[in-house]
Design a protein around this nucleic acid. Structure first.
Length: 808
RNA sequence: GCCCGGGUGGUGGAAUUGGUAGACACGACGGACUUAAAAUCCGUUGACUUACAAGUCAUGGGGGUUCAAGUCCCCCCCCGGGCACCA
């Protein structure tokens, strides 16, 4: 190779790979399948940014590395093209999403993705907006509906006034819409839900066994949020029974009042006549508050007395019932017993409204003043009748609940924070929910043979904020007939949250050849669950949780025979630019295309991976790509024969080169396996530095270097491999092997410490026993001067590493 | 408030089980080549005292354990992330 010109080399190998089908996978014939999945992008008009490429390249390295290790790797790619991102952009630019999306996909694939050198099998591409795909998204919805996992109900849901649609709880961040940051309000609407809570326990417990990034597991655990406690039945004085949830049944004797959520259905009935006006005014006031206002940090407690009283089942005590918005309808039973002595929120409320505070748990010190501050620590029960003296949080919880359980007034329960997934969106750009409403037959799912319910082309698809989707304005779509009775019927006009589209795309990849089924059973059995999934942690409670849930749901419906979709999930880090977060508003978004054009995809890939730890993220600095190109230039010069030159055959002659060769193979393999790409590249630099300085001209070393480089810089690795005389792609070769014995130098440098401080270093043959080293150490000049006049009281000896002499 | 990560030279970042802190780079400085520049190559580069000898101090701060601590323990500060009036 005359001079390394990436544009020539990369174009050559792109064509060669395409011509030879190098990146294609024989899905049925594969012997060692490895499904290497990366989170698919939404094809935005802005194009791929460095963050996308950082994610993809890190994943591609695993795919290529596994392939060199003999796996049949399947590395597909697709486009998540439904949803508000595409729709909002279309609205802004005035171009219809149906036209914009295919163009963006084309540009993503042809001018960006293919140029980065991803080992993608493009014969299995997926586009969530194509009818062949969303037909099966709708089929999944119908399947869930038929199995009781999808239902419609009127509920107080999260409404985004900016996007003019409802949102799932997962899409509300700190009370704001995750997309447009508008303050989310509550709205009473009939919506479709998926029963995510049905598998809350499994989704939580399975996490412990999963090979996933810990921070992703933690995020899911927090989101699912389990708390164990008891449901206790109270009775309203002269009224019905009701139950409350508590994690502290041991404090039942300390309950001095009850609180109902303003939305609780019993409130109207229980309110005393004299209190009706006040209670009603309070409830109306709360309903007018946004989520942010209601949950604002440090907000003072509010509430109102209903005039009603409840009877405490443990002691028959009559305690007042209040309504306050610090009790949420959506969690537990929407009513609580308040124990101000041992709960900080109840304490605050009791102080404000002058309610009694009764201590029932006393800590070991016994000096906590519950009138001043709630005591939430461990302690023993007091003022609790026969239960006095019990260890509160263990024996107390058990004994008191057990006692009530015998009287059928309590049961042990577990509550989850997770809510059902609100699926309806009052927007245009999504898969229509395949349901028809008939006066006679009620809710009727669209029969499988009539799927897909095509999304009609609407020229005016703006959301109008009426609470109805723009599709409701299209009579031809809205009015239809019932598949059961043939009578007139109305279609559901809401579309589905596009997270449903992305919850199953990876089942579709292997099966894109089939239009009569969502996924082929044989291919699914062979390729799934996904072996490795790489993506961003921002989807921990969105995509990753939804797709875990759907997998379990499809298993329960009999369509899959496994419960978890991803064997291993790795969350990559985030990229910043010169230490600052990249964002459109800052105007510091890096366009990868220019770097690739100037320095080549290989240099760009290498720099992305070198600038920081893949799992932690990195700081993109100008000049980095250029420096990496310089390294690849040096690598070419070191690895390739010059004009008219022949490289030495056979293993290298000198021990030092053998050491570098073997230890680099070992280290790079270990580093790639643990996603430590930056250190793998550093190892390659060290090997190249050794080759350059010592003028190593050896075919075996160059061949190993090409294969070590191949996952990181695939085009250049191919070029070098070919120049070394190989007729086939380097990806049809194998990962180089190393000799463990050669990974260690025959001589090692011992560090000699005196009292823990380094005082000298000596070169010794490896593996010497302590007795032979000692005299050599004591004879060392630099060390001797620290020993004169002192007594050696202790000698620490770490084989092949160091000797520490403790002197006095 | 609770739960996870983090804090290392001028900069990005290394450092399997406690065992030479700063690998590998970037930048800077000096030199070679050149009419000159770019590119390339060679050298120096944590701070301080200083003679390139030698030493002292250094991994957010303060204690501790240990022959030995970036790494383990306790307290505190700062940054990033998750949850949060969830009973």
């Amino acid at each position: 190779m005359a001079k390394y010109d990436p544009s020539v080399v990369e174009a050559k190998w792109r064509d060669r790979w395409e011509r030879d089908g190098t990146d294609r996978t024989d899905l049925r014939g594969a012997k060692r399948p490895f499904y290497n999945l990366m989170m698919f992008p939404y094809p935005s008009a802005e194009g791929l940014h460095v963050g996308n490429l950082f994610a993809f390249v890190g994943s591609d390295i695993q795919g290529r590395f596994h392939r060199l290790q003999g796996y049949d790797v399947f590395e597909p790619m697709g486009f998540d093209a439904f949803g508000m991102h595409s729709e909002n952009f279309a609205l802004k630019t005035g171009r219809h999403p149906a036209e914009m999306v295919p163009r963006n996909i084309e540009r993503f694939r042809e001018t960006q993705l293919k140029k980065v050198g991803l080992m993608v099998d493009w014969s299995h591409q997926v586009d969530t907006t194509s009818p062949e795909y969303y037909r099966w998204t709708q089929w999944i919805f119908v399947t869930l509906y038929k199995n009781g996992l999808a239902y419609r109900k009127k509920a107080s849901v999260n409404w985004c006034p900016g996007c003019k649609t409802v949102l799932a709880a997962e899409q509300v961040i700190d009370g704001q819409c995750e997309r447009c940051q508008s303050e989310v309000t509550k709205k009473e609407m009939a919506q479709w839900f998926l029963r995510t809570t049905a598998f809350a326990r499994e989704l939580l417990e399975e996490l412990d066994r999963m090979d996933w990034s810990e921070r992703t597991k933690v995020a899911q655990r927090n989101w699912i949020g389990r708390s164990q406690g008891a449901e206790v039945t109270f009775r309203l004085e002269g009224g019905p029974e009701f139950s409350i949830f508590t994690t502290r049944p041991d404090t039942l004797f300390g309950a001095t009042y009850m609180v109902f959520s303003p939305e609780h259905p019993l409130v109207g009935e229980m309110t005393a006549d004299g209190r009706r006006e006040a209670v009603e005014a309070y409830r109306q006031g709360v309903l007018g508050l946004s989520e942010v206002e209601r949950q604002a940090e440090g907000r003072e407690k509010t509430g109102v007395f209903t005039g009603a009283h409840a009877i405490n089942p443990v002691n028959g005590e009559r305690i007042p019932v209040w309504v306050a918005d610090y009790v949420l309808m959506g969690y537990g039973t929407g009513a609580i017993m308040a124990v101000p002595a041992h709960d900080v929120r109840d304490h605050e409320f009791a102080v404000k409204f002058g309610l009694p505070i009764r201590e029932v748990v006393r800590g070991a010190g016994g000096d906590a003043d519950v009138q001043r501050e709630a005591f939430v620590g461990d302690g023993r029960l007091v003022n609790s009748g026969e239960f006095d003296g019990l260890e509160a949080k263990t024996e107390g919880i058990y004994s008191i609940t057990k006692m009530l359980e015998m009287r059928s007034l309590a049961k042990f329960t577990t509550n989850y924070r997770l809510r059902d997934w609100c699926l309806s969106r009052q927007r245009y750009w999504g898969p229509p929910i395949p349901i028809v409403y008939c006066d006679k037959c009620g809710q009727v799912p669209v029969p499988e043979k009539d799927l897909p319910v095509l999304l009609p082309r609407l020229d005016d698809y703006r959301p109008d904020g009426s609470g109805l989707s723009p599709l409701a304005r299209d009579e031809g779509f809205h009015k239809t007939s019932c598949s059961q009775c043939g009578g007139p019927a109305l279609r559901e006009t809401d579309v589905s949250d596009n997270f449903l589209c992305s919850a199953w795309y990876f089942y579709r990849y292997p099966s894109t050849d089939f239009d009569d089924r969502p996924f082929d059973p044989e291919l699914t059995r062979k390729w799934l669950p996904v072996d490795l999934y790489v993506g961003g942690n921002e989807h921990a409670v969105l995509h990753l949780l939804y797709s875990r849930w759907l997998c379990r749901a499809l298993q329960k419906c009999g369509h899959l025979d496994f419960a978890e979709p991803y064997e291993k999930f790795v969350a990559h880090g985030m990229i910043v630019y010169n230490g600052a977060k990249m964002s459109k508003s800052r105007g510091n978004i890096i366009n990868p295309d220019e770097y690739i054009r100037e320095f080549g995809a290989d240099s760009f890939r290498m720099y992305l991976m070198f600038m920081g730890a893949y799992l932690e993220g990195g700081d993109f600095r100008d000049g980095g790509v250029k420096a990496m190109k310089a390294f690849l230039d040096r690598l070419c010069a070191a690895a390739l024969p010059g004009e008219g030159e022949e490289l030495d055959g056979g293993p290298p002659a000198d021990a030092e080169t053998l050491f570098w060769l073997n230890s680099t193979i070992k280290a790079v393999g270990a580093d790639l396996a643990r996603f430590s790409y930056n250190t793998a590249i550093a190892r390659l630099m060290e090997l190249v530095n050794h080759m350059t300085r010592n003028k190593v001209r050896n075919r075996e070393v160059s061949g190993a270097l090409a294969r070590l480089l191949a996952p990181l810089a695939p085009h250049l690795a191919e070029e070098i491999w070919e120049a070394l005389g190989h007729g086939e792609s380097v990806f049809r070769s194998s990962w180089p092997e190393f000799d463990e014995a050669a990974c260690h130098r025959p001589e090692v440098e011992y560090v000699i410490q005196v009292n823990g401080k380094v005082r000298g270093k000596i070169l010794l043959a490896a593996g010497l026993p302590q007795e032979e080293i000692e005299p050599l150490v004591l004879a060392n000049e630099a060390v001797a001067k620290w020993l004169s006049g002192k007594t050696v009281v202790k000698k620490i000896y770490v084989p092949d590493k160091l000797v520490n002499l403790v002197v006095r």
